[in-house]
Amino acid sequence: MTTDVDLPTAVSQQFPSATPRPSLDCPAFNVPAGDVLAVLQYLRDTQACDFLMDVTAIDWSAEASPRFTVVWHLYSSTKHNYVRVAAACESNVEPAMPSAVVLWAGADWHEREVYDMFGIKFTGHPDLRRILMWDAYPYFPLRKEFPLAGLPAEMSDADINAEIGVGVISAPMAGGPFVATPGEPMSDAEPRAKDEAWNEKKEKPE
């Protein structure tokens, strides 16, 4: 990967509000939410970062403030370098961010996914609906307070719900998640329940 050494200086000259963001690979910037579209447009039009690779988000934790950070990954198909732009949402309760669909049509589904998983509303998005979960799903699953096993909810089809009478349940974790522990002998490191004090038949002790 070739990195354009001039790009960080160019961005900080153009946008004094953009601060360098710690990064192990490509140039990265923290940008105020209000400037983010201008920065992205500058990167696209002047720095030839013509490809929006990814839009994602971070939930730092329910107590952190600012809580949500939206991250854009750009790539230049002519200069072959990557740039990362991050912007913190101003509100922790109703997080919002300007939509990049005006710059890249491909941002549409990325932003729908971020909305689906984190509940971050993209202002100016043409069709901000859930993309993975069904429309009536009441939670945002990648928020920190949401448990991995899930929370009870209704499935999407009212007819079927009435007929079968089962809905979304919290998945039985049975001591999981089952992850390997690094650095142990292989027989001890393999994925298995770390907490075997409880399972499907025995309730988890409080």
């Binding site: 993975l132 979960m133 939670y139 699953p141 949401f146 448990p147 991995l148 096993a149 899930g150 929370l151 079927i160 079968i164 089962v166 979304v168 349940i169 919290s170 998945a171 039985p172 974790m173 049975a174 999981g176 998640p177 089952f178």
Partner: peptide, 17 residues
């Protein structure tokens, strides 16, 4: 049984429906 997907998104066995 839902297999390895002990998650919020996966039906825990098709025999539930």
């Amino acid at each position: 049984s839902g297999g390895m997907y002990r998650s919020y998104a996966t039906l825990q066995g098709v025999d539930r429906i």
